[in-house]
Amino acid sequence: MIRAALPLAFAGALSLAAALPAVAQQQPAPRILVTGEGEASLKPDLAMVSLSVMREAESARQAMDANNEAMAAVIAAMKEAGIADRDLQTAGIQIHPRYESRSYDDGRQTSEIVAYQVTNTLSVRVREIDRVGEVLDRAVTLGVNQGGGIAFGNDDPSAAITEARKAAVADALAKARTLAEAAGVALGPVVEINEQNSGPSPMPFKARAEAMGAAPVEAGENTYTVQVNMSFAIGGE
């Protein structure tokens, strides 16, 4: 029984081995691959402002106390200006020693701690763009001496992203039709589609800060970009 089974098993292995090259030689169906891009712009409706207070003293404790006092005044002023608690967030507190190099008559050189620096960074979300300059001016008056970075955004950019998606797909369809026509083939159905999108990039748009004495601020426009990669069959039904 065992001897009789061996030729059958060997014959089955040969049949499987003969079938493998046929599978390996199968080629994917021809397709048209294109990339489409679309974008849509929105005027910003909020701004993220980064404000930092740095204080220096002989000890870390003294530097921290001075920094706490200054930052507390800045936070109180932001709230008085109508900034909600949810729009105020501490972004980081750093404590660093400051060193100075000293040289001696015998040629020795040392590096000694001469002071400590404490930096507290506050992120402020400003929901009225025209008040950004006023917020910056008030913060500097109260002791902010570092930072000042501004990022303009949109509370709900979904409508702009949807428009960018539609434009990207239309762009990809137009490219695919042109390629199919040029190649003399029929454009089949969509086989695969995937999307990549990027956040807003600033574009020129006039804006002004209306408060007297406030820093001039240009809000710009936020442009949302979507890229789609689409695969079409050739000569589909």
Results as ranks from 00 to 15, higher is better:
A29Q: 07
P97M: 10
L142Y: 07
D106C: 02
G82E: 05
L179A: 12
L46V: 12
A40N: 15
K166T: 12
A81L: 13
S198I: 05
E237W: 04
T119F: 01
R131D: 07
D85G: 01
G38Q: 07
E56K: 14
R131C: 00
V74W: 00
A159V: 04
V74N: 02
A9L: 12
Q117K: 10
G184M: 04
S231Q: 08
I95G: 05
V53M: 03
L6F: 12
G220A: 04
A91E: 11
A219L: 10
L16H: 09
G36S: 02
E80P: 00
A19E: 01
V126F: 03
I2Y: 12
P21C: 01
A70D: 13
M1C: 01
E100A: 06
R61V: 09
P189R: 14
V140D: 14
L20E: 11
I234G: 10
D106V: 01
A174D: 15
R125H: 02
N222C: 14
A17V: 00
I75V: 09
E100C: 00
P200D: 10
E39Y: 06
A4E: 13
G149A: 14
L8R: 12
E210A: 14
E221C: 01
G92V: 05
G107R: 06
V185W: 02
A211T: 14
G12L: 10
R127N: 10
S111T: 13
V190F: 04
S41F: 06
L173S: 12
D85A: 03
A57Y: 03
V217E: 05
